[in-house]
Structures are given as C-alpha cells and as structure tokens.
Nucleic acid binder design. Structure first.
Lengths: 252, 252
DNA sequence: GGTGATTTGTGCGTATGTATT
DNA sequence: TAATACATACGCACAAATCAC
C-alpha cells in the first residue's frame, strides 16, 4: 500500500462525511507533508487523486479547496419518475431543489442491436426511435438519457417528433392506452469515453453511473432508456418497503 | 475528439451488445490499424482503455480476446436481500447461479462519525458495532460489505460476536422484535482507493459501485450498510411496480 | 526440438494542437 | 506574448511470447 494512501483516505473521508464542507481550504502541501511525515511529492499524489475524482480543486497561489459539490438525487422510486419520466418529471424535481433545469433533445431512427432487440421484443435490425436527451442543471450538462421505443409503440405518435412532449412521454403513453405498470432498473458503472467526458463536462477519473431501465405495460416492454450520470454530481435513491419514519429528520 | 475514439466505441459496443461474446479474438493491432487508417499506437490506446475497463485481455504472441466476463446480479428488491441480507441471502443467490460462495467476517467497535450518527439516530462518537464482510465468489473477492449497528440494537446479541449468524442478521433481528419493514438505498460510484483495489483484486480503471443502505423498523433505523461492488463484475437490479411478463423470456 | 511467422509489449524520436503558466 | 507542459498522433525498431509446421 503506497504511503500517500493514508493521507488520501483521511482527506476523502473528511470530505465525504461532511467534516470538511465545500469551500474549506486544505492545509498547504508543506503542512500536510510535515503532519503526515511524507515528502511533498507524496502529498501531491494524494491530492492529484482527489482532484481527479472532482473532490477538490487546486489553484496555483491560492491553495486547494474542497470542491463545490452539488449532488443531485435521482429518485428511482418516486412518482415523478413513474409518471412523467422522460421530460418533465425529473426537471420538476430539479427545480424543486432550487436549481434551473434545461434540456436539449434529438430524435433519430436507428436499427436495433442484439441487446436492445431482446429487451424490446423486436428483431435485430428493426427500426427503433431514439430520443437523446441532454439535461442541464444551472447550465451545466448533468446527465444524458437515451431512450429507445419500438415502432409498434412510437409510430404516428409525438414520440417520433423531435419536440418535447409537454406532459412527458410516459404520461402521454398512459393517456393513450400504454400505461406502464412495472419496470426493471439495471445499474452499472464504468469510466466515461473521451466523447462522453466532453459532452458531460466531467473529468476523466470520474465514473459514469449507467441506469438501464426497461419499462413494461401489462403485456409488453415499451421502452428502454439508458441514462448516464457523472458520479461526482449524481446519486440514485430507492425507497423500498414501508417507511414509517422520516429519514431526513434526525432522531426524535 | 481523439481519432482512436471511433475504434474504441466500435469495439466496446460490439462487446457489450453481445456481438463479440467472451473469448472472441480481436483482429490484430496491425489489421485494425490498416482497417481504421490509424497508427498502431492509436490502436493500442483504444485497446488499453478497454483493457483498463476489464473488457478485453491481451497476451503477447496470442492476441487480444474479449474477457471472460462473469457479471453477478445483486437483486435490490428480491426477498433474500430483504429477509437475510447480511449473511446467507446473497450467498444463496450466488449459489443459485452455480457459483461457489464464501465470506470472511471481522467485527469491531468503532465510534460513529457525523454521517453515520445522523443516519442511525445516535450521537457522534457513540459506539457502533462494525461488521466487515468480504465476500468471495469462486475464490475471487467479489464485494465488500461493511455494516454498522447502534449499541441499542446490537448489545447482548450475536451481532456483536465475530461469527456468522447462520440465518442472517436481518432474519435474526426480525425473530427478536426488530423486523425491518423499509429501507433506503443510495447508490453512487467512485474510483477505488489503492487499498480497496488490492483487497478486491480489481484493476485501477474499474469503478466501485457504492450501495449505502439504511434499514428501518417501524419506528427507528437499525442498520447502515455500505457495500462496495467492483463495477466490472457486478450490477444492481431493482424490480419495481408490477411485472406481468417475464423479462428474461424473449418475445412470446 | 528447432525454426519462422504472428502478435503483443516496449522503447525512441518527432510533430502538432491545446491549455496553463 | 512567450514558454512550458501535456495529450494526441505517427512511424520505426526490436524484444518477448505464442503457435504451427
């Protein structure tokens, strides 16, 4: 185990546990070196790793500071996600947290690859409608959602138009006989590609959380969405079972 | 956007979509260089990135192959997780998939930091029971779960003993008047520290999925667990709402 | 077992564009 | 504006591992 690891662990724990809130100035590299009995190079290595993860921001001459760290929560189980996911559900959520939401949309026709074909009960190569939604929060790109609809669902509907469906695609579908009653969320994580890092304006060491959601009516799958969340500014939250206490409130 | 990116994207898509199943040999670096009109160095960069993510494995003299890719699914919503999570629930699941499960356990007393204190309704510095569970699958370390119990829950119970609770701690607690009726799962991802990468035997480019679960009885939180999943061999799956169709079965 | 062909691993040098200082 | 550093990209050469004959 490298020597800088202990410093790195301490700092990360202090930041993530809230002991050092955003804006806090770290002690200087020289001070940390003396305190931990390390060479300044080792201190820099620990800080470089934190910087790579987006936890701190170093500025020459000023010092190193805990990064302003807005983490938005994506509620996997709450109603907005269930009733108006594609468009306004998430965005109302964002605005509830006092932030400014915006999104850009592209719609294309693409052939289904093997995986999406299996999930959507179509044949490989069949045409799917792809809706690519880049969501901004406070004018920063925040997450990228790519949704796929089979033609049997999308044909002749506003889903095929390159425009926002004001009430959200999920709500629109429910109003037209395609009510989504269940879904499966698969969650993985991986490093971003260079292109993804660029469009989402994330540093390369930050992972992407990948949420692959398949939505079902009572008798068929109707949509697959893949949402990419930069892990330094997003977390997913699932509320399961029955909660009789308020988790945000402290002890009574 | 770098030129090697197109090759990287093509290869990754071919692998993740199933077009190139595990064991498939990639074309040689020289061939790919000619095909994509790149220098060999650029081809190597694309492959290095895939290798870093654990998607391919290169061997001198033989070639580069799509990695044998066992991905185990952690079911966030199924009963094993709800009734016997800590011990045997997950492991029965693993054995159901035809793999060999094993785990090592350490139990310690630790003071609560600010974050865990807030979640468990105790004061910062109060003593918690820490149960550290390293799970192996087929003799490879697979995930690391660290659970924290407040003393009001753990005192005088097998939870404090450094031994497996055969029926699982959750089941044990339910049998003794602490039935868990709800829980909150918070999901994030981050790069592993060097120590974590070592104990979980993962390559450094692979992210960790972090699942932070707070479990509640009808009137209080009773446990916080933080589970670390190397992202290249784990995925989380949540089944939500009502599913009237079998998602694993193809189209009828 | 030996030999040569193939393939990855590694080193070096050069050039270019971008961002930082 | 100049200097510096860094990532990207290209090309070449050789070493090391593997495999077929």
């Amino acid at each position: 185990m490298p020597v800088y690891q202990r410093l790195y662990d301490d700092l990360r724990h202090a930041i993530t546990s809230g002991a050092m809130p955003p804006g806090t100035k770290l002690r200087s590299e020289a001070e940390l070196a003396k305190q931990y009995e390390l060479a300044r190079g080792s201190v820099r290595q620990a800080i470089a790793q934190l910087s790579n993860e987006g936890l701190v921001k170093a500025t020459a001459g000023r010092g190193t500071f805990v990064a302003e760290h807005v983490v938005l929560t994506y509620y996997g189980t709450r109603l907005p996600a269930l009733t108006g996911n594609s468009g306004d559900g998430y965005m109302t959520n964002v605005e509830l947290e006092g932030r400014k939401g915006r999104q850009s949309l592209e719609v294309r026709m693409v052939p289904a690859d093997a995986d999406r074909a299996r999930r959507l009960w179509v044949h490989e190569g069949d045409t799917l409608v792809e809706r690519r939604l880049l969501r901004y929060v406070d004018d920063k790109p925040w997450s990228l959602q790519v949704g796929y609809y089979p033609m049997r669902v999308a044909e002749g509907t506003p889903i095929m138009a390159a425009e926002n469906v004001p009430e959200g695609t999920t709500k629109w579908m429910a109003d037209h006989g395609l009510e989504q009653v269940g879904r499966i969320d698969e969650i993985t994580a991986r490093p971003p590609s260079v292109g993804e890092a660029a469009t989402l304006q994330m540093s390369k060491g930050v992972p992407l959380i990948v949420l692959l959601r398949t939505a079902y009516t009572v008798d068929q799958p109707v949509r697959v969405t893949e949402t990419l969340f930069p892990a330094d500014r997003n977390r997913l939250l699932y509320e399961l079972g029955e909660l009789h206490v308020d988790p945000n409130q402290g002890m009574p």
